[in-house]
Design a binder for these strands. Structure first.
Length: 607
RNA sequence: GGGGUCGUAGUUCAGUUGGUUAGAACGCCAGCCUGUCACGUUGGAGGUCGCGGGUUCGAGCCCCGUCGGCCCCGCCA
């Protein structure tokens, strides 16, 4: 028979009591984390959201409570009435409450619990249960201190953001979750409507257009903690639904947005006693790609990419010569002190870069003797020259990739991170923020042989590139589009893209150019976002803003590389919820009402 | 859409070249124990080796398919 709570109120949490509380009568409530039974003496680790307090039951003092404790099992929910005393034996420095313990004279069993499907308290994360078990029993996983900390840190971050935005004069405005599908960008989640059977709403990929409309509406400074939805494949840092700080302001320029982005992050980080520089370092997109092979460089370590194409301009080695002839490049990174890389290891690294489209990974090892996969084709002298250009020293390994510029950047950029992880080159508890500027306005789409908007189609070009932009579109020199830079920027911390944004186009003729560049006809554009184009014609102020990923901000802050750990109820890599078992089927009647027929996986391709 | 990797007790894992009764630790259950905090100690229970098919005298191990977790490419700011 369970006890009832009645009028009993708890006096403290399980993480609160200190040596100064000795002598106090207290009431604690929580879960049984652990029981250590010595016969006449029993210890219980009582856990709640705040920590763990040791409860002691001595048969000699309170035989009733002691006897009752015999029946306690892990995760039972209990209330304990007792007295705070200084520990008799050794204090426990691992617990915040480790100097005291509570001598219980009464225990109430408020609820029992089945044996959990996995152990909540285990030493070391490597012994933690498989993630699918943790996801199925998410409510149990969330009881663990680490997860409690993650979720509560998240709340603290969001609170800090609201505090800062409010202080800076921004108005929080909610925008609809039920929107209209727009064909470009990510795939939409669509929502049927009974009232409009056969028609669909779409969930927002982001409130982009709506936040621009708040500028046209004259709110001047808008922000929102907005849920975003994208029906795309997942990654360790991507979930189908995630949360953004969405910000937009009027009468602004890039410098003002940079200051606001920095200010926001600096304010948030300060809550965790982390000082970021008031003005973050900056780097253009082109420089980031050139030096780090990435538009979100991790600046916690060096190992920059070095260009070897100058030294190899006259080479007749097939793969290199072809790469250079096709306007490609040859670059390398230097791994300090790893001339001892084995054949197996370089093979592994070669397999790694091949994922990014690299044909091969060439290497030079400056050991006691210099060895190289290129020795036969280039000769000793050239090898020595390349090593010198790379500034490699005795004992180092040089890893080289040749090919298209984008492939060399992607593969070496990724290799740089991979090697840094393997070699433990990334310092812990260091935060290296960066603002990446001047992103390209357009991205060449290989598969369809045309240019897409790199950010979104309302991003303004840089004033300096407006001329070239006009020429590219009106003079029909499409190849010039690749060189047009945008007033677009990202905020990066430790190689994680935590925010991104742009100054928007507010002039009709530039917007028209932009649509033409990406092959969107007047009619198509009107069809897709006519309401927005119309709005632009009623006095749109110059405006711009950014969006910051809440989960990514937390990943950077907590040095966590799994986005699921930062969302209370996340989905798996295949976009399922293992706890609710969603998505699920619905009744035939429901579908009928909505005017929807479904097809199975097998019949879908036949239609 | 493609690639990699994992799937054995409640959990984390081991399991030789295919060989007889599939192991360990933690957890769980029962006993003992008055200062533990990864308590100790004695004993015990617990297995559709993800699922289906195949090869074989014999499959946890080999082959084919399939399902699921994780990671990556494509995709996605």
């Amino acid at each position: 028979m369970l006890d009832t709570l009645g009028e009993l109120e708890r006096t403290h949490t399980c993480g609160e009591l200190r040596i100064g509380d000795v002598g106090q009568k207290v009431v604690l409530m929580g879960w049984v984390a652990k029981k250590r039974d010595f016969g006449p003496l029993t210890f219980i680790d009582l856990r709640d959201r705040d920590g763990i307090t040791q409860v002691v039951l001595n048969e000699a003092d309170t035989s009733g409570a002691h006897a009752k404790a015999k029946g306690l099992r892990g995760e039972f929910v209990i209330a304990v009435k007792g007295k705070t005393v200084e520990r008799e034996g050794t204090h426990n420095p691992k617990l915040a409450t480790g100097d005291i313990e509570v001598h219980a004279d009464e225990i109430l069993i408020l609820n029992e619990a089945k044996v959990p499907p996995f152990q909540l308290e285990v030493a070391g994360n490597e012994n933690l249960a498989d993630e699918s078990a943790r996801l199925k029993y998410r409510y149990l996983d969330l009881r663990r201190a680490e997860m409690q900390n993650n979720i509560r840190t998240r709340a603290k971050v969001v609170t800090a953001i609201r505090e800062y935005m409010d202080g800076a004069g921004f108005t929080e405005i909610e925008t609809p979750i039920l929107l209209k599908s727009t064909p470009e960008g990510a795939r939409d989640f669509i929502v049927p409507s009974r009232i409009h059977a056969g028609k669909f709403f779409a969930l927002p990929q982001s409130p982009q257009i709506l936040k621009q409309l708040t500028m046209i509406a004259g709110f001047d400074k808008y922000y929102q903690i907005a849920r975003c939805f994208r029906d795309e494949d997942l990654r360790a840092d991507r979930q189908p639904e995630f949360t953004q700080l969405d910000v937009e302001m009027s009468f602004t320029n890039r410098e003002q947005v940079y200051r606001l982005m920095q200010g926001t992050f600096n304010h948030v980080y300060k809550k965790f006693d982390i000082e970021l520089p008031e003005a973050w370092p900056r780097m253009t997109h082109a420089e980031a790609i050139r030096r780090y092979g990435s538009d979100k460089p991790d600046l916690r370590f060096e190992m920059e990419l070095i260009d070897l194409s100058g030294d190899l301009a006259d080479t007749d080695f097939g793969p290199f010569a072809e790469a250079l002839k096709a306007n490609g490049t040859i670059k390398c990174i230097v791994v300090k002190g790893r001339a001892d890389y084995s054949r197996k290891q370089t093979d592994e690294l070669q397999e790694f870069v091949k994922r990014y489209g690299a044909g091969a990974l060439a290497w030079i090892k400056l050991g006691d003797e210099t060895t190289s996969s290129l020795l036969k084709v280039l000769g000793e002298e050239k090898i020595a020259q390349l090593a010198a250009t790379a500034a490699a020293e005795k004992g180092d390994a040089v890893l080289i990739v040749a090919g298209r510029k984008s492939v060399v950047a992607a593969s070496l950029g990724a290799l740089r991170l991979e090697v840094a992880k393997r070699e433990n080159l990334i310092p812990e508890n260091v935060y290296k923020p960066l603002i990446v500027t001047e992103f390209p306005l357009f991205e060449y789409n290989d598969a369809e042989d045309h240019y897409d908007a790199a950010h979104h189609p309302f991003t303004a070009p840089m004033d300096e590139d407006l001329e070239q932009f006009r020429e590219a579109v009106e003079g029909d020199k499409r190849e010039l589009l690749g060189g047009v830079r945008a007033k677009a920027y990202d905020a990066v911390i430790n190689g994680i893209e935590v925010a991104g944004g742009s100054i928007r186009i507010h002039q009709r003729d530039v917007q028209a150019l932009n649509f033409k560049a990406i092959g969107l006809t007047q009619e198509k554009a009107r069809e897709r976002f006519g309401f927005f184009l119309e709005a632009l014609e009623y006095g749109t102020p110059p405006h711009g803003g950014f969006a910051a990923g809440i989960e990514r901000t937390l990943m950077a802050l907590l040095h966590n590389d799994n986005i699921r750990d930062l969302i209370a109820f996340p989905k798996t890599a295949s976009a399922q919820d293992l706890m609710m078992d969603s998505p699920g089927e619905v009744d035939e009647a429901q579908l009928k009402e909505l005017g929807i027929k479904t097809f199975t996986r097998e019949t879908r391709s036949i239609h």
